[in-house]
Amino acid sequence: MDNQPENSRASGVSNNANAPYGAYQPQPGNQAYWQQPSYAPPYAAPVQPQKKSRGWIVALVAVVLLFAFLFAALASCTSVMAGASSSMFGAGSQSAVDSLSEDAVGVITIDGTIDYDGSTASPEGLKAQLDRAENNPHIKAVVLRVNSGGGTATAGEEMASYVNDFSKPVVVSSASVNASAAYEISSQADYIFTAKTTAIGAIGTAMQVTDLSGLLDKLGISVENITSAESKDSSYGTRPLTEEERAYYQAMVDTVNETFMETVASGRSLPIERVRELATGLTYTGIDAIQNGLADEIGTREDAIAKAAELAGMRTYAVVSLEPESDDLSDLVGLLSSSKMSNEDLIERLKELNGNGSQH
């Protein structure tokens, strides 16, 4: 079915037909926005025009070239600085992780909508980092730092299976939101930490089909869908659903949600009927999640790291971040060096501009 919406884990909030379904979205008005006030004089003092030379342009170019040289020098010593920066700030670059000489806990951040975008909030991105931890003998356990309201059902299902298949201890550290598909993934961990105010859970599935036919009629727009079957255009939004189509989609949602509940029940060692009772589509506070069995303990990211080390039997350990490789610095240096005009030519051109231009 063309443009058929995908099913997904839900928190009870529906999205439009083209968006990932089931992503938990806090209601507007829950956050306060503050803008720093700016100060300005009550009047503008008159400025006397002054004659200025354009020789400052040459000086500016010289400064830019100096910065380009510094960036190039910095790029050449990136590999040397990576190890030092990881030990100072806890960041684990590719070289820092691969050069580990002591036991460590790897931290993987799952932030944003669960989807297929290549990040660690996607099946391929998460698996890449789990494989990296699996194959590194010094990484004895993993912490998933989760801050996500859910997303695509199939992506969540795949990611949950990867966590379940991981051979080393996995501990979840819940940030502000750990809901829907993100919670399905978390449910496969060995231990779940949450803050008291974390929005966690939201076990449920949603699908949305928008009917725009009334609006199209008011605008005088007529859409005729030529299809191979009567229900082929059921999700196009140009007509209401029939009762049969509505029942079909409801059965699809129920099937997907049953898979969700079974996954949570297995991961949390809860009876399926108990999970069914908790599958209201709504989130719970961290405090409630401890009481109903969806989480294990109130704690911070540091508590989760300590628990992961404990489960792995480590007394002393390093902490490294497992993230996709990034070549931002190399890209920046390449951009600075990609100009077809040489530095000398650029300076000469600016000198010509300075000589031919008028002064003010």
Rank of each mutant, 00 (worst) to 15 (best):
Y249K: 10
E245P: 10
S222D: 14
E258M: 12
I272M: 10
G267K: 01
T205H: 10
V275T: 01
V275N: 01
R268M: 03
M252V: 09
R246L: 00
D288H: 08
D211P: 05
S235T: 15
S235H: 11
R239K: 14
T242E: 04
N257L: 02
S213A: 12
T285V: 07
T210C: 01
A206F: 00
L241T: 04
N257T: 08
G237L: 06
I298C: 07
L216V: 06
D288F: 05
G286Q: 05
R268D: 03
I203N: 10
V264L: 10
T285K: 11
G281H: 09
L282I: 00
A279R: 06
T242A: 08
T285D: 13
L216H: 02
E244Y: 01
E243K: 09
S187D: 08
Q208E: 14
R246G: 15
A202H: 03
E277I: 07
L270F: 00
I200L: 13
L216Y: 11
M207P: 00
E230N: 10
G201F: 07
K232A: 14
I203Q: 11
V209S: 02
I200T: 15
L282W: 12
T227H: 03
S235Y: 13
A247Y: 00
L282Y: 12
M252L: 13
E262Y: 02
N292Y: 08
G281I: 04
P271D: 15
G237S: 06
S231I: 05
I298P: 02
M207C: 01
S234T: 02
P240S: 11
G204A: 07
I298S: 12
A189H: 03
S266H: 09
A202T: 01
K218L: 13
F193M: 04
N257Q: 12
R239Y: 06
D211G: 06
L216I: 06
S266M: 12
E243L: 08
E243G: 00
E245L: 11
A189S: 12
R276Q: 13
M261E: 11
A199F: 07
D296Y: 01
N292W: 06
L215M: 12
T283M: 06
E244A: 14
S231T: 09
V256M: 11
S187G: 09
A199Q: 13
L241K: 06
F260Q: 12
I200D: 07
V256W: 14
T194S: 11
Q188G: 03
V275F: 01
R239L: 09
S266D: 15
R239N: 09
D211V: 08
T227M: 05
P240C: 10
Y236Q: 12
L216P: 06
L278T: 01
G220N: 07
I221K: 07
E244P: 03
E262D: 13
E244C: 02
L282D: 15
A199P: 05
E277V: 10
S222V: 11
G286K: 03
T280S: 15
T198F: 07
E262S: 11
M252G: 09
G214N: 13
L215N: 08
T242R: 03
V264W: 02
L241F: 04
A199D: 13
N292F: 09
L294W: 00
T210M: 08
T238D: 12
K232T: 13
S186M: 08
G293R: 05
L294F: 13
Y284H: 12
E244F: 03
G237P: 04
F193V: 03
S186F: 06
T205V: 08
L215P: 00
T238E: 11
K232C: 10
G220L: 08
A189F: 02
K232F: 11
T227W: 03
G220Y: 04
